[in-house]
Each structure stands twice: as C-alpha cells, then as structure tokens.
C-alpha cells in the first residue's frame, strides 16, 4: 500500500496521468460540443480509432504535424458524414454513431493489413513517427522549486499542452462568443433559435465536425505519443469512457476536463499497478477504468437526479 502511495505521489505518475488523460480530454471536449448542440456523439471511439490509424500511416511519409492534422481531418470527415446522415437523411444519431464505430473496428484492420502488407495486428513494421515532447529543462535553473517544476512540467506531449489550451478555447467559444450561444441554444431548445433565424441544422453539422476533429487529435495523441504505432482496437473503449466523461462533466468544458482527469488517473493506476502488485491478475487491473466509469456515472446521475428533485420540491 505504501509503495502505491509513493508511486501515486511521484512526478512520474503525474506525467503518466497527463499522458493517459490527454486522449480522453480531447475526445471528451469533442463529445461535449456535439452533446451541447443536441446530438449525442457515440462515435467518439470509432473516430479516435480511424484518426489514430490515419495519423500513423501519414506519419510514415510526412512530418508529425502533418500526420496529426490528417488525423484531425479524418475525424472531421467522419463528423461530416454523421451530420449528413443524421441531419439530411434523418437517421437516428445513435445508430449513425454505431455505424461509424463498426466501420472503424473492421475498416482499420482492413486498412492496416493493406498498409503493412498483411499484418492485421500492429503497425510495428511501419516506421511511424511520434509527437515531440516539450522539453522544459531550463526550469531547473529556478532556485528551490526548479527541479520539481521540471519533473512535473517537462516531457509532456505538445498535444497535452494544446489540450489545456483547448479547454480554455472551448469554454471561451461556448460562453463568450455568439456562435457558442447559438450552439447551446440549438441544443437546449431548437425551436427558439430556429425562430430567431439561426440555421439550426448548420450549427449541429459544424458541431459534429468539430467533435470529430477533437476526437481526431485524441486519436493522434494515442497512436503517436502514448503508443508509437497502431494496434488493432487500440482505443479499447476510451471513446466510450470519454462519452461517460461528457455526461459526468455537467456539460461544461472544465467539468469534462475534471472527469477526463479522473478517468485518466485510474487508467494511469492500471498502468503502474501491475509492477507493484503482481499478485493481482492483469485483467482485473484493466477493468479498473471501466468499473470507475460505471460507478462515477451512476453516482453522478443519482446526485443530478436528487438536485432536480430538490429544485422541483422547492418550487412547490
């Protein structure tokens, strides 16, 4: 137990948490935007998976930032596809989302085996690149706190820093710009913005595209930093956990970030625990993020329900 505490309060654990949280954070922000516009995006998982593979394959031939951008573009295109089928052809958004997920699980294996010449498991024989880490070792020069600061802040992916910025950017967009107000209005009560002449379908379509783009960054981070290279089903439910983070985050970017951080911490625990407790079977440790998601979801929904009941009671 002591060893676990020592590990958890170490700087390396913090770095691991940042690493595991980043993909979840991007996906959760993406899910948040589409959820606020009134379309629950269950395809975050598939979008991340396809973006991860796209980024890996492009990174063989192009610099890392082009690869990340191509992952973003892949996610955005899937978002546009969902928007087309949901808004133009009136298909149920959840079914459309699962169609994207099914396309992703099979399609990535198919594309992977084409790209690697028959390997259906990993992209290990593709020389794919990584997202560079931000080196802040100059912080060490600061007296007293320098070394601690350096070990906490140095060595994160550029995308992790972008993630922190994105939380602010999404918040600013949603709550400080007219377009954010449109988006929230469309999700809250579509008839009102419709009457005010706001193009409801267009707002939803763009929010699905943005949602896909954000999930795409998450996928790129996963396959170009957390792991270098693509493995079959490598998202392993992260898109669905991110969806849980959206529901848990009280429909606010900061809430989504905190929820993503919570799940990131437990995923990081699942990463470090096998070394500490080799008597706990690995499969049981791997269930931790999923168990925590279910429990957190139930607990939070219960509290939200109680709060709603209290409000209606106080009105009477």
């Amino acid at each position: 137990m002591i060893e676990l505490l020592v590990t958890v309060f170490s700087a390396t654990f913090f770095v691991t948490v940042v690493r595991t949280t980043t993909p979840l954070l991007f996906a959760a922000l993406g899910g948040l935007i589409s959820d606020l516009s009134g379309a629950l995006n269950v395809a975050l998982e598939g979008m991340m998976l396809i973006a991860a593979l796209t980024a890996v394959i492009v990174s063989v031939y192009a610099p890392w930032y082009v690869a990340v951008l191509s992952g973003v573009a892949a996610g955005a295109m899937l978002g546009a596809l969902m928007a087309f089928f949901h808004l133009r052809l009136k298909a149920d958004i959840i079914l459309v989302g699962f169609a994207v997920n099914i396309l992703a699980t099979g399609g990535t294996v198919f594309a992977l085996s084409r790209a690697t010449g028959g390997d259906k498991g990993t992209s290990i024989n593709l020389p794919s690149k990584a997202v560079p880490a931000v080196d802040l070792s100059f912080l060490e020069a600061i007296p007293a706190v320098g070394p601690t600061l350096k070990s906490l802040l140095s060595g994160h992916s550029i995308l992790s820093w972008l993630g922190v910025f994105m939380v602010f950017a999404v918040w600013y967009f949603l709550f400080r710009t007219p377009y954010g107000l449109w988006l929230r209005g469309v999700g809250e009560y579509p008839a009102a913005p419709e009457a005010a002449g706001i193009p409801v379908a267009k707002v939803r379509a763009w929010s699905l595209v943005a949602s896909g783009a954000l999930a795409g960054i998450g996928g790129a981070q996963l396959a170009m930093f957390n792991y270098i290279g693509f493995t079959r089903d490598m998202t392993a439910g992260r898109g669905f956990i991110a969806l849980g983070a959206v529901l848990l985050g009280a429909r606010h970017p900061v809430g989504a970030m905190l929820a993503a951080l919570l799940f990131g911490i437990f995923e990081a625990l699942a990463v470090v625990m096998p070394n500490l407790f080799n008597w706990i079977p690995g499969e049981m440790i791997q269930t931790i993020p999923f168990v925590v998601t279910v429990l957190a979801l139930i607990l939070f929904s219960y509290r939200a329900q109680r709060a709603r009941q209290m409000r209606t009671l106080s009105k009477i």
């Binding site: 298909a91 459309v96 169609a99 099979g106 399609g107």
Partner: peptide, 17 residues
C-alpha cells in the same frame, strides 16, 4: 474485415429515410 464497410453502409442507409 472489408465486410465492415458493407455493414456500416447498410446501417446508415436503412436507418436513414
């Protein structure tokens, strides 16, 4: 796994009007 393309298209088309 190519069949997943077929699956996705069928779901998308049948679910949409």
């Amino acid at each position: 796994e190519m069949i997943s393309v077929v699956q996705a298209i069928i779901i998308l088309l049948v679910a949409s009007s």
